[in-house]
Design a protein around this nucleic acid. Structure first.
Lengths: 192, 192
DNA sequence: TATTTTTTGAAGTGATTGTTTCAGAATTGG
DNA sequence: CCAATTCTGAAACAATCACTTCAAAAAATA
């Protein structure tokens, strides 16, 4: 047996994600990426493949991390209605925090129309969030916290499409108050 | 006097806009652009400036065109409430039609954090839409078509942020029914 | 039509793109 | 400690990037 790889692959992907997040897929050069990952390009091509494969790994890493976070948070609430309200305000906090917007949304607009591999990953991530929300909504209905005639799927899509817009508004105006107001308004609308 | 420019500058900008719209700022090469515009690169640099100046012109062209269309449509309705409802369904139709999403939103995510010139243009466009909507809402309130306590600014931001998300959903799922359902739901929520 | 002015086409600029090559350093199992 | 194997660093790859140069073609004025 020969020498083993010295650098942490997961750590490298996180560094690369930062670069892609900031500069986008086309805006990030391989030099930007290898500089951030602190590995030589030969090591990169030997282990992680090429630029596109790295990007796929970054998208997977990002969506997986969000998924885990989502499930962790959900467990801390003691009613589905409270979980929904918590979700909406959590999203607002993330929108305000992320300087370059949501990596998934950014990627959806930049590469997804022409890159079916990436599109499939983002679609899957989107479906997960929708299922997560619609399940929560159905539980709330079952427990009498929300009206019986509520369309869970529709309301889930509604919530998702609403907060997507918050990212754009924050990118342009950088006004945290505006985002928080919108979140409060959305919570009121959804939970009436 | 010498020779005059033979190509139509406005037409060239429209062609360039198509390329930027499809490939993004970083994804579009100068070859892509001059090929689409059907002019030589020397003619391009002599008249339109460089890549970034062309992009600025494209953003201006796009936002201006939308602005004109918005004002035209608004005149065809006979009540502010009907105009609001019409606006929401018009947006849904555009979302379904545009293969690569809204150029302004796409650009907001791709370049606006690092390009203050572009950010300012998009912010201005966004402000125009908000003013347009909030004016409409205030008129509706004045005419007794909407509740007195309505926060016009907030509701305008709410509508904008909601339909931004429709673009992303349509990019990923390409499901017109879903978009129309969301539009109908949003109209119901806003106009209750 | 002659002259002046400007545009145009083709080729070429250096820099950067993503990717490869390969010799030598490093680390493993025997 | 040796030999086999694998990783690493630096240099180089062709292709493409945004952009320039310049002579010749074209058109406007006189």
């Amino acid at each position: 047996m020969g020498r083993t790889v010295t650098f942490d692959q997961n750590e490298a992907i996180e560094k690369a994600l930062d670069v892609f997040w900031k500069k986008g897929y086309n805006g990030a050069s391989l030099r930007d990426l290898t500089d951030a990952m602190k590995i030589n390009s030969s090591s990169f091509y030997n282990t992680l493949g090429d630029k596109h494969q790295l990007f796929v790994q970054c998208v997977k890493h990002y969506t997986h991390k969000r998924r885990v976070l989502l499930e962790q948070r959900a467990g801390t609430y003691d009613s589905p209605r409270a979980a929904l309200e918590g979700f909406i305000h959590d999203v607002a906090a993330v929108v305000i925090k992320d300087a370059h917007g949501c990596f998934a949304i950014k990627t959806a607009f930049e590469v997804s129309p022409d890159d079916k591999r990436i599109q499939a990953l983002l679609k899957e991530d989107n479906n997960f969030t929708r299922t997560f929300l619609s399940t929560l909504i159905r539980s709330a209905v079952d427990q009498g916290e929300m009206a019986d005639e509520t369309d869970a799927e529709l309301l889930a899509d509604y919530i998702i499409s609403t907060y997507t817009g918050w990212y754009e508004l924050h990118l342009l105006h950088q006004d945290p108050v505006k985002i928080n107001k919108l979140a409060a308004f959305t919570a009121r609308q959804v939970l009436h």
